[in-house]
Design a protein around this nucleic acid. Structure first.
Ligand SMILES: [Mn+2]
Ligand SMILES: [Mn+2]
Ligand SMILES: [Zn+2]
Ligand SMILES: [Zn+2]
Lengths: 139, 139
DNA sequence: CCTTTAAATGGAAATAGTTTCCATTTATTC
DNA sequence: GAATAAATGGAAACTATTTCCATTTAAAGG
């Protein structure tokens, strides 16, 4: 809550009703959403709201660390909330293919500047799909 | 070479001139290409060729292990050749941000079925960007 | 070779996600 | 309360990707 608001403020962004609403939406559900889904959910709560604004806000919130954008090969993009990390400030995420629940995965061995296969590493994408504990039982 | 042809045949796909040409294009350059780029290059060699066919072929070649599709957040997709792996049959790739050269990265610790953060792991995306040895000198 | 058949192809058009433009509104600061 | 830069919404533009379908072709069998 305050955490997200802080991140927004620290980035010099305004704390608008839509942004607050977007954060609430993500906090109430542990799964990723597409821009269109976010728009629909925001519209149910506040009145109308444009898709371009949603795109801008999702990017803005990802840019200041409130959300992150998932990697993937589908045609539409997904964002999810980066909740309280575990031990590791540098971490990645695993998404349940059944219920969409996102969890942290700590212990990444890669970091900027290290050598990897003769290359000087600049950035990396690491992302997982699996079945969460709950969905392993109830299936 | 034969390797790629084998993979195509084993998948029950036909070995068409366009597919051969696509493979040649990727073998002559170590960097990723977009579908549009592939189309242009194929057209320079053989006559006209449609973009839908290129899309179908890139997916087909990725499906049978000749190419792989890169993960990323840009709007267009990239494919690259999966060349002779090193020691590890399960590996990932690093792309040079300067010249585009793709190299293998062995030693992935993740595998299907393992437990990760309480999830049963199904799949993962791991991909790197860096600066290759050559580009570290010449810059 | 010649025939057969499922797969592949190209062009045009449709989709659909994303971005741009711009006039209007609003959060923030003083 | 006024000033100002940022945010917003709607319409339209963009553009990568996919679909459709008629035509061609690789591959298998005789
Ligand atoms: Mn996180
Ligand atoms: Mn490879
Ligand atoms: Zn689950
Ligand atoms: Zn390089």
């Amino acid at each position: 809550m305050y955490k997200a608001y802080q991140l927004i403020r620290n980035a010099g962004l305004k704390l608008t009703p839509i942004r607050k609403e977007i954060i609430l939406i993500f906090e109430e559900s542990p799964r990723p959403f597409t821009p269109r889904e976010v728009q629909n959910l925001v519209q149910k709560r506040i009145g109308r709201c444009g898709l371009p604004g949603i795109y801008r806000n999702l990017e803005a919130l990802a840019g200041c660390g409130v959300l992150f954008r998932l990697a993937g090969f589908g045609r539409e993009r997904f964002y999810a909330l980066c909740r309280e990390p575990g031990t590791d400030p540098h971490h990645h995420h695993i998404v349940c293919v059944s219920c969409g629940k996102v969890a942290h995965v700590d212990g990444c061995r890669y970091h900027e500047g290290m050598m990897l296969g003769g290359y000087r590493l600049l950035s990396h994408i690491v992302q997982f799909e699996g079945v969460c504990a709950n969905c392993q039982e109830n299936n």
